[in-house]
């Protein structure tokens, strides 16, 4: 009920998408990318959602979209609201919010490296964050195959024997007599 009331208040000022109430004190609201920045500023300055808990992305590969989640917390009222922004996978670009929360620059640097989402104007965006000298598609996207990457990049150490576990156990248990 509380989250529905907040949604109704916000709806008078901003066009909002779907509301998902997860708990009494946690709700997710879908918003358009262009509406996000003013909405965040309003929530921060007027509704008491002053703590940016996290900023992350979810890859919906089959829909061709990235979902960006901005999770805000209002400590006094003990409420959390997550803003969902869907951006196209083929043009992954989003407005930077580092001037609202300086800490957001770190999240944006990570998202750029791990998902390839661009945040023009965010400080030190070009610098490597976790990966060093990475080429190829950003590794946290769903179409990046970790197993294939490991097979291409690493080789088994020479002299190392690999055994099929089932065959090996059979040999250990029954020796050359085979299956008894």
């Amino acid at each position: 009920m509380v989250m529905q009331a907040l949604y109704d208040t916000l709806k008078q000022r901003f066009p909002l998408g779907e509301l998902t109430v997860q708990r009494d004190n946690l709700a997710f609201i879908t918003v358009e990318a262009v509406r996000l920045y003013p909405l965040l500023r309003y929530l921060r300055d007027h509704e008491g959602f002053s703590h940016l808990v996290l900023l992350t992305a979810v890859d919906w590969l089959e829909d061709g979209q990235f979902q960006l989640t901005y999770l805000l917390n209002n400590r006094a009222k003990c409420q959390d609201v997550g803003l969902r922004v869907m951006i196209p996978r083929d043009k992954p670009e989003m407005e930077s919010i580092h001037d609202l929360w300086p800490a957001a620059a770190t999240y944006q640097r990570e998202l750029r490296e791990m998902f390839g989402i661009d945040f023009p104007g965010s400080p030190r965006l070009e610098e490597e964050f976790i990966l060093e000298g990475w080429h190829g598609i950003p590794p946290y996207r769903r179409d990046f195959d970790t197993l294939a990457y490991a097979r291409e990049t690493f080789r088994d150490r020479p002299g190392r024997e690999t055994r099929d576990p089932a065959q090996h156990m059979k040999q250990q248990l029954y020796g050359d007599k085979g299956d008894v």
């Binding site: 998902t20 997860q22 708990r23 946690l26 997710f28 808990v53 996290l54 992350t56 979810v58 989640t69 999770l71 959390d80 997550g82």
Partner: peptide
């Protein structure tokens, strides 16, 4: 299908998991 965020207070501050 769903998404949630769960938090706890660890010795360094707010620890949380966002699960989709």
């Amino acid at each position: 299908r769903g998404e949630t965020y769960v938090r706890g207070e660890c010795s360094r501050g707010e620890y949380g998991y966002y699960l989709v």
